[in-house]
Design a protein around this nucleic acid. Structure first.
Lengths: 221, 221, 221, 221
DNA sequence: TATGAATGAGAGTTCATTCAT
DNA sequence: TATGAATGAACTCTCATTCAT
């Protein structure tokens, strides 16, 4: 009854030939359902969204939904999976944690990550909308998965910090994992702020403050 | 249809005489309903909680609920109001932003605030549980109110920072409002972490990292 | 999850005062639902009957049904219970197995029982309709209960036979329990026949044949 | 809308040439569908069995079903037809009603019939399972067909009795048709008993009692 | 011809809300 | 004033049937 053995036909490495046209169409529709569900959940919330809404939006009969997913509950897992994959893909491309060798390079790298994150989330704010507002509190299991995403983010950040410590441009006694958690908190805070405040200048200001806090701290000297 | 003209008999300044005993009893029951709703919402979530659950828990008929509140929707407003008041009360008591005159005193103050916050949220984790997991995504209006709470927190934090800048122990060019937002993010991140991780030592570690980041920054020198 | 602890407010011995009027009305409605369900199930069958049919027939909202029974499945148990009680009441009244002391009296008693049975089932053929046609094959558990009714009937008949053996007007080596089973079979066969053939004379003919078979056997001499 | 013009390619007298191979294959599959439907209906009941179950069990697409039968409803007719044919075949082979010339031969014949019946129904209890539990109450029309089977059984039994009367070893004034109905009732009662009670000795006991009742009656002398 | 993807009528069930008592 | 019986809109899910491939 565990929902997590989800990715039968997941994201990466699909070297398998597109197979028959029927199978391709099936996979397509399946994906379309996930995408539409994502939109509905993000905009109206999980509870306010009925299967009929998703199906109607897509222009399919609502019975069809159940040919692809056996549950309303099941689909949000797939939606979340997709989002996680999307985010990781967006972040992971060009910013390996070992790319920075000096504090200045580190600063530049942080800038790039900030821009990338902002990009994703301004491009489609529904991503954050769903993850932060509508995916919470549905289920213990789903909550655990969200925690897992958080852990991933923490680990990612910690990787950058660890590298900085190794390279010597970050404090040697830095508690990297806890600091990473704090940083993730700031980032998510920034994302929430971006959700309310569409003004890019304002967002840039907050990004700046976060970077500054992260790099220099608030101490005067 | 706006829900916000809520506070007929709100939090502060209830100088109005206790009036008749009947009226007092009524106010009491009203409060009990709010408290019970808080517990139910926090534990099972808003959607999974029925009016009948709240009433049953309290031992009143569920029709009675509608003599005190006209909506299921309405009550969560009051629950949130109560929580906000509780948190502000807990924070505001002894820690005026102007209490710190030096960096050391500031550091000490931050410690006290951290302890106070931890206190509230470890004492009754349902507070955070509700605010962060179950109050989100119910409603646009409620979301706006949560944003309002966030703003309050930001403003509070900004007050401390402004004071520090004025006193000269914080950087003069500090962007206090954006930095405050970043700090609030860290705090909430910490709270979320506390929710999953009941080990007090771990929480203390994260608190420490947050304080350190806030005061010293991550830079080596 | 066993359905059988059914009779909270069952059939016999209701010495408990009718209590409040509200409670009486509630019990009444409950009974009306059972009766209406009986009618619907008997006429259209269990599967073809929707909760909405029962409620509509009764003129209540279909949500109301669920205030009295938690399941569609649950109500047929109560319907069957009621029928069993009705039948037993109808049979048991005046025909104790020890009422017959001679073969002639036995013959007369059998006549009376036959008449009583015919009475019940001609009065409301839906009873047999439901038990024989629509209650079968719904559920393993329900099937077991029907078997139980059959056993009761067998035991009842066996009682009469045992008494006859004791009194000496029936064969001493009679296998009373198996013969009772055979007799029950004949009776049920007769009931089925009555269901199709409303002509009372025809039914009387079959009754006669059954009695004759039972008392004299088919042997010429 | 009458379902009864069923037997396009029925049971008996299929002298029609086997025609093309394709046609033969078609008839085969058609029969396989009927057989599989029989198994499913008998085991899970008509309502609990989906077309997809039958098709899946057989390994064909469930769309294919509709190339052979136009209805879910239609197929049970064919299933019943098949069963009737099977039973009649099993009974009719060697036990012509005119085979018995004396009471002793009659007794022996009854034994043989009892054995044959038991044989059929113990060999595949699903036959009785379906006929007695799952075919009832589906439809008025189907009920009529079951009644027809019953009539056949009655007529068959009546034939034996008539013959006995003619031969003079049965009572001259015997109401053969009604007695036959009673006998059929006993037989069906016995079958039901066999369904619950797999112990062969118990079944033999009941068979014995039925035969005794039939031949000697319960009268002491 | 065989298939299974698509469909939607319709089922059972829940629960916020009303209102007579 | 407090109650809980009554309600029905709304929801999730099933499955017999159709039809393009």
């Amino acid at each position: 009854m565990t929902h997590h053995s989800v990715c039968d036909d997941c994201i990466i490495g699909k070297v398998t030939k597109p197979s028959t046209r029927a199978e391709r169409r099936k996979a397509e529709l399946r994906q379309e359902i996930i995408d539409t569900a994502f939109v509905c959940f993000a905009e109206k919330g999980y509870h306010a969204t009925g299967i009929a809404d998703i199906a109607g939006q897509l222009g399919i009969g609502h019975g069809t939904f159940y040919r692809y997913f056996s549950n309303k509950r099941e689909i949000i897992d797939h939606v979340i999976d997709d989002l996680a994959a999307r985010i990781i893909a967006a972040l992971g491309t060009e910013n390996a944690p070992d790319a920075a060798a000096t504090l200045d390079e580190y600063r530049a790298q942080i800038d790039r990550i900030g821009v990338a994150l902002t990009e994703i989330l301004l491009t489609d704010r529904r991503v954050a909308q769903l993850l932060l507002f509508h995916a919470t509190g549905i289920d213990d299991e789903l909550t655990q998965r969200l925690y897992g995403l958080l852990d991933t983010a923490d680990a990612l950040t910690a990787g950058y910090l660890d590298h900085g410590v190794e390279q010597g441009y970050l404090r040697a006694d830095l508690d990297t994992s806890n600091t990473a958690r704090a940083v993730t908190g700031m980032l998510i805070g920034g994302i929430v702020y971006s959700l309310r405040e569409p003004d890019e200048a304002a967002i840039a200001g907050l990004n700046q403050a976060i970077r500054r806090l992260l790099v220099d701290g608030v101490r005067k000297d």
